[in-house]
Simulated assay, not measured.
Amino acid sequence: MLKKCMGDPSVILPTANIENKDTLSYGEIPVQILDRQVRKLRTKKVASVKVLWRNQFVEEVTWEAEEDVKKRYPHIFKSEENADQGTNSLLSTL
């Protein structure tokens, strides 16, 4: 049930004194690539990567086009390649 609320004018803040910056945002930085997949369409194949972003949980990862992520964040793929090479060299020694 709703009740009528009587406003208290002494609690209201004046909005003229509050200053907001236009850029109330932060840049998302990818932390890790969790998975890769290639989706086959009728005429082409689209490579996608599952990206874990900073300040997000694993449940909030997003699928991004691999080409776009490589252009914007090449350092992630370099670290992935180094890790793969280390694994391959370890396997070759066995």
Rank of each mutant, 00 (worst) to 15 (best):
S25K: 11
S25M: 13
Y26G: 08
Y26L: 10
Y26W: 14
Y26Q: 10
G27F: 12
G27H: 12
G27A: 13
E28K: 06
E28R: 10
I29C: 05
I29F: 04
I29A: 04
I29G: 03
P30C: 02
Q32T: 12
Q32K: 15
I33E: 01
I33Q: 00
I33S: 01
I33H: 02
L34D: 04
L34Y: 03
L34P: 04
D35I: 06
R36F: 10
R36W: 05
Q37P: 05
Q37E: 12
Q37M: 09
V38A: 03
V38E: 03
R39E: 13
R39C: 10
L41W: 08
L41P: 05
L41N: 10
L41G: 13
L41D: 10
L41K: 05
R42G: 03
R42L: 02
R42C: 01
R42P: 02
R42W: 00
T43Q: 07
T43V: 07
T43F: 09
T43E: 07
K44I: 06
K44S: 13
K45M: 13
V46H: 02
A47P: 13
A47C: 12
A47H: 13
A47W: 05
A47E: 15
K50T: 05
K50Y: 08
K50A: 05
L52R: 08
L52Q: 10
L52Y: 08
W53V: 00
W53A: 01
W53K: 00
W53D: 01
R54P: 05
R54Y: 08
R54L: 08
R54F: 06
N55K: 12
Q56M: 11
Q56I: 07
Q56F: 15
Q56D: 11
Q56C: 11
Q56P: 06
Q56A: 09
F57A: 11
F57E: 12
V58I: 15
V58Q: 15
V58E: 15
V58C: 11
E59T: 15
E59V: 13
E59H: 14
E59R: 15
E59D: 14
E59Y: 14
E59M: 14
E60W: 06
E60N: 09
V61G: 03
V61H: 04
T62R: 03
W63M: 02
W63P: 03
E64H: 03
E64V: 04
E64R: 04
E64T: 04
E64K: 03
A65K: 15
E66G: 02
E66M: 04
E67Y: 06
D68T: 08
D68Y: 03
V69N: 01
V69G: 00
K70Q: 07
R72V: 01
R72E: 00
R72N: 02
R72Y: 00
R72I: 01
Y73S: 01
P74I: 00
P74L: 00
P74V: 00
H75I: 08
H75G: 04
I76V: 15
F77E: 02
K78N: 11
K78W: 05
S79F: 07
S79I: 09
S79V: 11
E80W: 04
E80T: 06
E81H: 09
E81S: 09
E81G: 06
N82V: 07
N82F: 06
A83L: 12
A83R: 14
A83G: 09
D84T: 10
D84W: 13
Q85A: 13
Q85T: 11
G86W: 07
G86H: 12
G86F: 08
G86M: 10
